[in-house]
Amino acid sequence: MLTVRDLSVEFTTDRGVVTAVDRVSFSVDKGEMLGIVGESGCGKSVLARSIIRILPMPPARIRAGQLTLDGTNLLDLSEREMQKLRGKAVTMIFQEPMTSLNPKFKVGYQIAEVFRKHFGLRSSEAIERSVEMLALVGIPDPEERAKSYPFQLSGGMRQRVIIAMALAGDPQLLLADEPTTALDVTIQAQILDLIREINERSGTSMILITHDLGVIAELVQRVIVMYAGQIVEMTTTENLFDRPLHPYTVGLRNSIPDIDSPVSKYDGPLNEIAGSVPALDDLPIGCYFQGRCPKRMQVCADRQPVLKEVSPGHHVRCWLND
């Protein structure tokens, strides 16, 4: 349904052009939930925003071999044509429920905007439909809550409102950028349940962006691991946990604390991946992960590995699997 081939996003900065997303290729099938994981700054949010084309351009520049949604080449569309798709065919929800809603408008009105814009409904009908959407995402007393301003709602409620807003257009593709990161753990679980339910009921394809492997394990079937703007591993969720091949993926998996082993002071510190993500304007020749890799070889510093399919559906960018 969504096909992305050789998508790159470059930013023009004071210190030159940096590549935030580097020749990324993947596809999402109808009804599929794809996860994208990686540390902050790995390009996962930029990737999602470039699909829906809401990056500020300039400084951003998108280049792609192909970016098609249901046969429509998104990069060929004018901004006006793109506006007709945003909120309807493809939409996005964000990390910060506290600030992602406009503080000066009632939440019902903010959802109703989608109905008015994309379905041409009159205000009263649009408000009725938004009350239905609020009920759908499990907000109690939706009629009253539609009249609330964002500051009158809790974080979890607001995230439900944002999800309701995203679903209002009945999108084919929903991009969720860290939808649960800013929420309490119990609320996180509720929101994840809601997302799963929506996916099962409406068959909406989703791209779920997160740095939380727990969320990945809960929800998605297939995962992309990104590092410094590149895909370093792409495989099923099962493989990701049982047979990770890239040292970075292994490191990510090992950094999850084991809930079953009691933590005591003899256990030593939590596992982590040493070092930090290299700056995008200061990337090494060869493999971008070489500086932090426990299995570094000479070839890693000389030449950059390519993303290879090592077994059906399992792609890795690492010289170890060459």
Partner: peptide
């Protein structure tokens, strides 16, 4: 530059 502007863009509102 606020977050709610990005939400509004993602809804398909015009500039």
């Amino acid at each position: 530059s606020q977050d709610y502007i990005v939400t509004a863009r993602a809804k398909g509102l015009s500039k």
